[in-house]
Write a protein that binds this DNA or RNA. Structure first.
Lengths: 330, 330
DNA sequence: TTTATTTCATGAAACGATTCATGAAATTTC
DNA sequence: GAAATTTCATGAATCGTTTCATGAAATAAA
């Protein structure tokens, strides 16, 4: 006797329809079956309100149609935008997205990767900070903006070009002396390209520049000290700043304003990422815009294409510049 | 013969360790077992790099430790914040979060609910627009900010108090004539309480007020027309506006600025939600702040507590006011 | 009409973890 | 030392699908 409250199974449907188990399976999976059989099965499914059990399916097929997205958090609008577009791209392919915010837990990144190996997900898209994750060869993984080694494909914006573009824009906007500010791990080489591109651009345009890099952690006070060190008699040594991302740019702008400096009149600031307030709102600052939707689409495409051996190690997508009120071009 | 590339199973571990299947299961699940056995099994697990297969577990246990979060999108910072805190709250309880952005697909909401019934998730937390979702009695569901009927618990901010507070603040800030603007479905009654609370507050403080409600869809032009209708000789009929959410407030502010009005000098604007730029950044506008983390915690608590019958139908959490530059109190 | 071929529903076996009745071994009791 | 009791590893059965070898029925060929 079946428990009252348990969901009907294929067996129940088969009994109700008076057909074999395999026939029900075929109908459910759209495999051709005699018209009369199909009808009987469909009626029984309807009558019993049958739903396939996806554990049992997964057990046989070893496939979940679920992908995990590892992000530090969704509080950063750029990350939130990525999450949105990746969800769209996955949905289009009938996949679901497990969102994992790793910022709250230092071990979360590795734990989720382990989870993937327990077949809870078919693959992982990760924007991670931990540079030495153990990722098994057999785990489909695509990294965003961080190279994790030759076996792991990485999708990134053209960070070098972005840095170069920032320098050019600042030069075009009349800056004479600029600085690059950055936090985060020095091990993540993609953001380092922003620096390299910026230097390259500064040299090409004969801009004086300085670099302020704060590795690991977020001792924001160091930036404040740096800026105050370069602040003399109401003037800053720099008339242009390029921040490694919009979040840092926003924080820096607040510091500048607290110091009594006007943005963009006294100092022009360019960030990186190009996220917007409500998807359709304003940019948080003048910024190098990453092509979020394209990055998302590319990650999903790479992850789900069957042949892992043809994955290119690094995909660079083009960036653009957008004025956002913190430069003199609005 | 076992396929080369297939993951080791409990059977393999049992064979390797020279013990029975059930013994391995006990070790894996932390059930007491003789010391010598435990050691042998642990060594074998280590050696084979064994990971439990969660489909098989799910098939037996009928439990995924996964909850689906239905949101229109994460582009709205308030939604993104909710997603973040709900993920945290779930992680704390060893649950995972399936994030489903429903804005892109009109059928997505119902589809995800169907999915839950296929046991892909143990429950759903939904912030949905569709007022007539078919939710089976047996599907654990918690709704955010929309009452979906007596069987479905709803967690919301104290929207009435929020509306009231907005009116009081505008009165305190010197407004004489105010308006309430709102989009979205008229069927979702929680946001309607913001209106009711606002009216109540206006009456209590003897404020002239007008209501502009645009039901269903987003014909934003109607708001522009409304504002222009109330615009005479460089003056707006209102010196204060209360918008149903921050997103609308931001759009309205841009319209006002395009009309040549200054915010907050000419018109003060208060929104609703209280999301911030980068989690720690500025508010987008002066706003009634929803207690996002508490809402998240409450949703998860309600969803995962076993006893569905003791769920209260509606939980109201307290709101607060925060100045954000679009009122004269910064 | 008989034989060869094709078509297609059938249902047992398998996927991998959990559960629990079984009985061997160890311990306690008299 | 024998009997009674307790302890605990064992492995078959189970969960709900999918797959595929089987053979019955229908069709085609002779």
């Amino acid at each position: 006797m079946k428990r009252q409250n348990s969901a009907p199974t294929m067996k129940d449907v088969a009994r109700e329809a008076g057909v074999a188990l395999g026939t029900v399976s075929k109908v459910v999976n759209g495999i051709p079956v005699g018209e009369a059989y199909r009808k009987k099965v469909e009626d029984a499914i309807e009558k019993l309100n049958y739903q396939v059990n996806s554990y049992a399916q997964g057990l046989k097929a070893n496939k979940t149609c679920t992908v995990a997205l590892l992000l530090p958090s969704t509080l950063n609008p750029f990350f939130a935008e990525l999450a949105y577009y990746i969800d769209i791209a996955l949905l289009k392919r009938k996949y679901r997205m497990l969102l994992c915010c790793t910022a709250s837990d230092i071990n979360a990144e590795q734990e989720y990767i382990t989870m993937a190996q327990q077949n809870k997900v078919d693959g992982i898209i990760g924007l991670t900070y931990n540079p030495n994750l153990r990722i098994e060869e057999s785990t489909p993984y695509v990294s965003i903006d961080r190279s994790l080694g030759p076996r792991i494909p990485c999708v990134a914006s053209d960070n070098f070009a972005g840095g170069h573009l920032a320098a050019e824009k600042l030069a075009d906007l009349g800056c004479k002396s600029v600085a690059f500010l950055r936090t985060g791990s020095s091990l993540s080489n993609e953001p380092n390209k922003r620096k390299a591109g910026f230097e390259n651009g500064c040299l090409a345009r004969h801009l004086n520049y300085e670099l302020k890099i704060i590795d690991d952690g977020d001792p924001f006070q160091e930036f404040i000290d740096f800026l105050e060190m370069h602040y003399h008699k109401g003037r800053l040594d720099f008339d242009g700043l390029f921040c490694v991302n919009d979040e840092l740019a926003c924080r820096i702008i607040r510091v500048l304003q607290n110091m009594g400096l006007r943005v963009p009149e006294d100092v022009q600031v360019i960030g990186f990422d190009g996220a917007k307030g409500f998807g359709h709102g304003d940019y948080y600052c003048s910024t190098i815009v990453q092509p979020t939707a394209e990055i998302a689409e590319m990650c999903v495409e790479l992850l789900l294409q069957g042949n892992m051996s043809v994955r290119p190690p690094l995909i660079c997508l083009p960036v653009s510049y957008a004025a956002g009120g913190t430069t003199k071009d609005m």
